[in-house]
Design a protein around this nucleic acid. Structure first.
Length: 223
DNA sequence: TTATTTCTCTCCCAGATTAG
DNA sequence: CTAATCTGGGAGAGAAATAA
């Protein structure tokens, strides 16, 4: 897809130092979300139940309010400006949070809850934490299922922001977005164990001895 | 190159709401 | 009650893509 960068630059007007929230009604944000998801005015309009004309009005208002073209014509369709790209994820999260707040769902009751939580982690969680987690769930939340997924650590934030994953157990801590919370669970040490009378470990396993031994590296990710 | 199609933008208007 | 304002729809113009 080709975009005329000169035109993109020309369509930008100075960004207001502070966006006046009083000048934005919620419908405009819903329209903006649809526009950012679809990159297409007519489809965005259909998505939120407006006519193309009304969506075009909304886009014009958003451009005025945010001081940015947001979508510009490119070869093959409308293209998001860098500012629009920047807005996409925070707006999604904000609207989802607002929706949750307004939905006024009853508080989570473990004893009666019936749902599945998806946990993204590496094998450590499965072997060390999962047995006690399942035992605890069986006792306090019998209607709750766990689905455990093994994924790469750099994909955790995106999976959580999209709602595909509810929880990740990961080490070391990963860079997370403003809509995510993380908490340190515990610290742990590595321990080396050798049998008594090992022919190469006569005076205890000190650093020099350890370094002189042969090693096998097991790396599922190949690094 | 031209005709056609698709899509966006803009003007104008109607209905609802708000302020005086 | 009236005028102003806001929101959204209809219709037409114009730009860009596509097919012949």
């Amino acid at each position: 897809m080709h975009v005329d960068m000169r035109r993109l630059h020309e369509t930008r007007t100075p960004v207001p130092e502070d966006v006046d929230l009083a000048g934005i009604n919620l419908n405009l944000l819903v329209a903006l979300d649809a526009l950012l998801q679809e990159s297409h005015v007519t489809r965005a309009a259909a998505r939120v139940g407006l006519t193309q004309s009304a969506m075009s009005h909304a886009l014009a208002q958003l451009r005025e309010l945010l001081g940015d073209a947001l979508l510009i014509r490119g070869r093959g369709g409308m293209v998001l400006t860098p500012r629009a790209e920047q807005l996409t994820a925070p707006l999604r999260r904000g609207l989802a949070e607002l929706q949750r707040a307004l939905r006024s769902e009853p508080a989570f009751e473990p004893a009666t809850a019936t749902r599945r939580f998806t946990v993204a982690t590496r094998d450590y969680f499965g072997s060390v934490l999962l047995p006690s987690a399942l035992e605890l769930l069986g006792r306090e939340a019998p209607g709750v299922d766990l689905s455990v997924r093994h994924v790469e650590s750099n994909t955790y934030p995106a999976l959580m922001e999209s709602g595909e994953v509810d929880l990740t157990v990961v080490t070391p801590p990963v860079e997370s977005g403003p809509g995510l919370r993380q908490q340190k669970l515990f610290t742990e040490d590595f321990v080396c164990v050798v049998r008594k009378g090992h022919p190469k470990v006569r005076r205890g396993l000190d650093l020099d001895t350890y370094l002189h031994l042969s090693h096998v590296l097991i790396s599922p990710r190949g690094d």
